[in-house]
Amino acid sequence: MSSSTSASRTTAEADGRRSSGRPSPSPGGGLGQALGDGWTIAKRNLIRIKRVPDLLVGSIVSPIMFVLLFAYVFGGAITLPGADGSIPDPRAYREFLIAGIFAQTVIFGATITGSGMAQDLKTGIIDRFRSLPMAPSAVLVGRTTADVVNNVLTVVIMTLTGLLVGWRITTSVGEAVLGYLVLLFFAYCVSWIMAYLGLLVRTPEVFNNVTFIVIFPLTFIANTFVPLETFPTVLRVFAEWNPVSSVTQAARELFGNLQPGAPDPTAWPLQNPVLYSVLWGVVMLVVFVPLTVRQYQRAAAR
């Protein structure tokens, strides 16, 4: 020890001089700091989206595939109620389909938040964050915010695909923007649940399996791909109150994709789809933001 100490004493002195002007961490605190920290983490996650485009490609390719599969494989066999004649009109179905794919895709997009959290726990970078004097919510706020950007990019690609297969927005710009906002806001709220699950499960692979099992039926037992009129009663009631249906319905209304002559929905959630979707979002946030922050502190403290 002593030999190495004397050998590098000059460095010690250099250190001493430098120390006089060293930066010092400020105590900070409060909402401003929490938002600032959240933004720092969001920047980190945005850089990751840029550097690892695989994830983004994955979340873009599958909806394109869904659009093509449903538009051209199943679409011909699906009859929309209210469509005149017994021969299904494929163009009407594509019009109907796109909003459903939007809803499914942004919800699957929200799962990235959870696998990302599980991944971060695994690599140990959460330990680094936890040992820093930063707001405990920042990692979650930053992550969910960055994942919204991911979803925005996916929605843009899907819009272009939809336009290619003949889907059109027939309403005003304001209504269209509101339609996109409902989709993205709902997905943002879901991503907090996903963050919670990711922290609970802790393994990215397990998380992906679990969410697939839950989200796949949730987005299919809804008005996403087929009209509810054909469902057996139990499933229909579930689907009517399933917020995925209301988000889809909201998007259809706001994009002007409701079929002319289609029967009016009888369930309240589908009569007030925007309100019902936003209510669900708010409830998810109120419940899961505190729950997830707590789980973050616990998960990291194991």
């Binding site: 961490p25 400020s26 900070g28 720092t40 983490i41 980190r44 990751r48 964050f129 820093l132 004097p133």
Partner: peptide
């Protein structure tokens, strides 16, 4: 995925 510089700046930012 971050560079060395980005990693350290992030930590510096989180120390405010």
């Amino acid at each position: 995925q971050l560079t060395g510089t980005e990693n350290l700046r992030m930590v510096g930012d989180l120390y405010h």
